[in-house]
């Protein structure tokens, strides 16, 4: 039997999650929770044969023993309120909002360290794309400062993202330090309205000691990119990482890494790599939980 998954939130993220859960042999799309019966997400899920409710999270809590994992795809404030209820109900929570009730998880970097926790936070889309690269540099050199720029198509940034721009930059910055291993972090997000929509781009800058071996950095980055690609197939390095000696603060070496994330096109079209990478990461965590529970087919 597969792990029974409930998704809370029927917007872009929740709808994309349903599609990805349906593709998995080890996960079962057992419920999509919304609050608006007219929402596109609920209608589409119902058409795919997924049980849905517009009665909100109480519906889920009333029959919590029917589910193993809950994916929170609402907002930070909603998850902050729901998290203790999920914990009391014995549900494993994967939090795709910036609430960060539980520790950050970036599957390619720290899944083994946090998989025994009952509530994990998926950072942000930009964090899922860039933290692995910072961690890859950190494992071969001390990163005194890491900075990332995420550029997302305006069409792929829903109302939640737009009202939570500061949460994005602050949560991502924190994760660059806590999971990426940088001493200081800074995150920037840009929305681009071009039509046809641009595919999600991320650039990572890092300051490392001047005597760092450039090849060690490049090898580590390429290996990490392959690890991410295993659960986010559209993840790729666009150009060779650039390493400029003396170009960083205080004579440090500047590392620049250019990434593109093409979405799988599950719910929104493939330009929405930002949506894809965070949902794919959460499904990767759920797959690991299924394996740990002995529920892998």
């Amino acid at each position: 039997m597969a792990l029974r998954c409930a998704v809370v939130g029927s917007g872009n993220i929740g709808s994309d999650l349903i599609k990805k859960i349906l593709k998995s042999d080890n996960l079962e799309a057992s419920l999509l929770v919304g609050i608006d019966p007219e929402s596109d997400g609920l209608k589409r899920a119902a058409e795919l044969g997924v049980p849905t409710t517009a009665a909100g999270v109480d519906y889920l809590l009333d029959r919590a023993s029917d589910y193993d994992i809950v994916f929170e795809a609402t907002s930070a404030a909603v998850h902050a309120a729901n998290a203790p209820k999920f914990a009391d109900a014995g549900l494993f929570a994967l939090d795709l909002t910036p609430a960060a009730v539980g520790p950050y998880v970036v599957p390619a970097v720290n899944l083994d360290d946090v998989v025994d926790q009952r509530n994990l936070n998926l950072v942000t889309c930009g964090g899922q794309a860039t933290v692995p690269i910072v961690a890859a540099i950190s494992r071969v050199a001390q990163v005194s400062y890491a900075e990332i720029v995420s550029t997302v198509s305006s069409r792929a940034a829903g109302p939640g993202t737009r009202a939570n721009i500061d949460e994005f930059t602050e949560t991502t910055s924190n994760a660059l330090v806590k999971v990426g291993g940088a001493q200081r972090g800074k995150a920037i997000i840009i929305l681009n309205p071009a039509n046809p929509p641009i595919i999600m781009r991320n650039t990572v800058f890092a300051a490392v000691p001047a005597d760092t071996d450039p090849q060690a950095i490049i090898d580590s980055i390429e290996e990490m990119a392959e690890s991410v690609k295993r659960y986010v197939p559209g993840y790729e390095l666009v150009n060779a990482p650039q390493i400029d000696r003396g170009a960083g603060p205080d004579g440090s070496t500047k590392v620049a890494v250019f990434l593109r994330v093409t979405g799988a096109g599950d719910y929104l079209p493939e330009y929405a790599g930002n949506l894809d990478i965070i949902t794919a990461a959460s499904v990767a965590v759920a797959e690991r939980l299924a394996a740990a529970a002995g529920k892998v087919k």
Binding site: V149, T151, N192, N239, A256, F258
Partner: peptide, 17 residues
């Protein structure tokens, strides 16, 4: 590429290409 304000990172990207 229809870049907008703030996308200075794309300058290096284009130059490398």
């Amino acid at each position: 590429r229809r870049v907008v304000g703030g996308q200075e990172d794309m300058i290096i990207d284009v130059a490398i290409e």
